[in-house]
Simulated assay, not measured.
Amino acid sequence: MIYENGFGFERETKEKGVGLIFILSAPSGAGKTTVVKGVLEQLPGLRFSVSFTTRLPRPNEKEGEDYHFVSHSVFQRMLERNEFLEWAEVLGNLYGTPRPDLKKLKSEEMDLILDIDTQGAKKVLKEVDQPILIYLLPPSLKVLRERLMKRGLDSLERVKFRLSKAGQDMEEALGYHYVIVNERVEGAIEKLRSIIIAERCRRNKLSIIEENKEKWEDYNG
């Protein structure tokens, strides 16, 4: 619903119960996985969309929780059936975001958070109504390099590639609704949590007003 107010601008308001779609983008090594897990532990009614990938699991990654790990042939069959909202190839590995079941999200009153890079976010914008875009930044490229080197999962060449891509993607952050700098994990979790709560309040404002309107009209002072 488009709501025109007295301030001279229009803002679209979703119906209460309609699932919100949050897109979280970040350079590899920015701490996105840790931040998302922290928010999921604190906020009810929020679900993480588990992506599919053809790469091998990293230490401590769990099937169905961090990713669905599949073969190239399985991934290709899913592509042919148009099962991905978006997909990309990164460093020789395929990554795909499954299409969300929006009707199921609404019936279960769930919101969804997607882990997608900036290019994937552009594709999703063409298919999903009003997703909320959030970009998670590392404090600096120097800190990002230190984090990538410390976790020891990539060769030096791959680290250089990730840093170069991170520098390019940061320019795209200007087009996002929110930007969070992950200096401290606890602080980043709290900021993401606050954004989700604020967007839920915005979604529900019309229903809140309607539910309380009768009380206000009955009040005679």
Rank of each mutant, 00 (worst) to 15 (best):
110 M>S: 09
163 L>F: 02
130 Q>V: 13
105 L>F: 06
137 L>C: 08
137 L>A: 10
155 S>M: 04
93 N>T: 06
176 Y>P: 08
148 L>W: 03
169 D>R: 08
123 K>V: 12
86 E>H: 09
138 P>W: 01
98 P>Y: 08
117 D>S: 03
131 P>C: 02
78 M>Q: 07
148 L>H: 00
115 D>I: 01
155 S>D: 07
118 T>S: 07
89 E>G: 05
149 M>Y: 14
125 L>K: 12
145 R>T: 13
163 L>T: 07
113 I>R: 00
120 G>W: 03
81 R>H: 09
158 R>T: 15
110 M>L: 15
107 S>M: 14
144 L>Q: 11
138 P>Y: 00
75 F>I: 01
173 A>G: 09
171 E>V: 13
109 E>K: 15
178 Y>T: 12
159 V>Y: 02
94 L>I: 04
155 S>P: 03
70 V>W: 02
90 V>I: 11
179 V>G: 02
97 T>D: 04
97 T>R: 00
146 E>Q: 08
147 R>P: 04
168 Q>R: 15
80 E>Q: 11
107 S>R: 14
160 K>H: 08
105 L>V: 10
157 E>V: 04
109 E>Q: 12
72 H>N: 09
141 L>N: 01
122 K>H: 10
166 A>T: 03
76 Q>Y: 11
149 M>R: 13
178 Y>H: 15
140 S>W: 10
166 A>E: 00
160 K>S: 09
152 G>A: 14
135 Y>D: 06
78 M>H: 07
162 R>S: 01
119 Q>E: 14
167 G>I: 07
171 E>N: 13
76 Q>I: 10
110 M>E: 12
156 L>A: 11
70 V>I: 07
178 Y>R: 12
108 E>P: 01
177 H>P: 13
179 V>D: 04
180 I>V: 14
84 F>G: 04
120 G>C: 03
82 N>Q: 15
